[in-house]
Nucleic acid binder design. Structure first.
Lengths: 197, 197
DNA sequence: CGCTCGTTTGAGAGGACTCAAGGTAGGTGG
DNA sequence: CCACCTACCTTGAGTCCTCTCAAACGAGCG
């Protein structure tokens, strides 16, 4: 989801600077704003799984985040934190609602974005529901390809730890599973770099 | 999500009878229609987890299902099957898009519905991401309360097997975990009926 | 009563997790 | 250019606990 900068400002949006590590909103807090990244990057995660950080997504300039709870008046299930010094745009809920009410094309974009989120989250749920570590990894890699985050025969831009965090496994388990998958020719590991075949 | 019967018909929707066990759409197929239950009930599940059925949801008269992939032109991740003899309304994608384009209030309802789905699916993902069976069960029960499906001190309307299917555990594990939770006074089991405290 | 469906208990195996210890690559400073 | 540091990767041993398989129990119903 992306709304033109000038349009956000026109509707009363403001820009805010966020330092690295600063929290934009946290779990169980009430949504008040529509948020869009102007510069930097915002990390979205859940921290309630036995204190372990469970990364959901990372948002970069032009992308918005945190709409679902805003639209249905529920508390955030996630925490948003600046990964680096960033600037974000804030638009009050009422103004945001007015904006989409008066701009049909943006409303349609929002609809698609929400559909996309529902779709991707279900995909993640299916990864997690899978009891076998190997299957989880394969499904996770598949998802990356589908989301165009990686291409086949391109090294995967995540550390083993980052992969583990996203699929709910331990680093060691990821490593051992990757070894099995390599023997089955489903992934390739060259000089520690991981390739999906 | 719910659209008025007459309106669906006006836009060219048709009703279709579905026998018990019949598939409305299945995983990896292309979305073509907007679907809404008229009578009976439709079960949504994923079957790809080692052949085990993973129930996502059950839809009853007046509710629609399967919109996210329809809106973003992706294949279904789920299978929809009639739990009993049912009648559903089908509306071609183009007509559906035209309908929401011409009815702003319905478009807003769709938006909220999608936000709700994204929210609920994330909640499910957080349940699954939790490594401890007890925590999964507690979070699952919490979700039921939040969705107003159950109230505290009301027997939970699911069999142990159904609970297990929704959180990715075995029946036996659910039973043994429930016993532990009872000892911790987090649930109550009276005459096999389960109460959430 | 006898069937069926859901619940419960037990024993055993497998495998992910934990903890601990090295190994390796890339960057930094002397 | 080399020694060092740090972050990441890897391996091993052992424990714990979920899953599997098998069997039996309980409740509701024709």
């Amino acid at each position: 989801m992306h709304i033109d900068y000038d349009l956000i400002i026109t509707y009363g949006g403001i820009a805010k600077k966020i330092s690295k590590g600063e929290i934009v909103f946290s779990e169980n807090s009430e949504p008040k704003y529509y948020y869009q990244v102007l510069s930097g990057s915002i990390k979205i995660y859940t921290s309630n799984i036995q204190g372990k950080e469970f990364v959901q997504d990372i948002y970069t300039p032009g992308q918005s985040f945190g709409e679902p709870p805003l639209l249905i008046d529920k508390k955030y299930l996630i925490t948003a934190e600046a990964q680096e010094e960033s600037v974000i745009l804030l638009l009050k809920k009422e103004n945001f609602m007015q904006l989409i009410d008066e701009h049909k094309e943006i409303h349609f974009e929002l609809t698609k974005d929400l559909a996309n989120r529902a779709y991707n989250t279900l995909f993640s749920a299916q990864i997690l529901a899978n009891p076998s570590p190997e299957d989880k990894i394969i499904k996770f890699l598949n998802q990356l390809v589908e989301k165009n985050i990686i291409e086949k025969n391109t090294p995967i831009p995540y550390t083993r730890q980052q992969i583990a965090n996203q699929i709910g496994l331990r680093v060691e388990t990821v490593i051992r599973s990757l070894n099995k998958l390599q023997k089955e020719n489903k992934v390739q590991i060259i000089n520690r770099k991981l390739y999906y075949l």
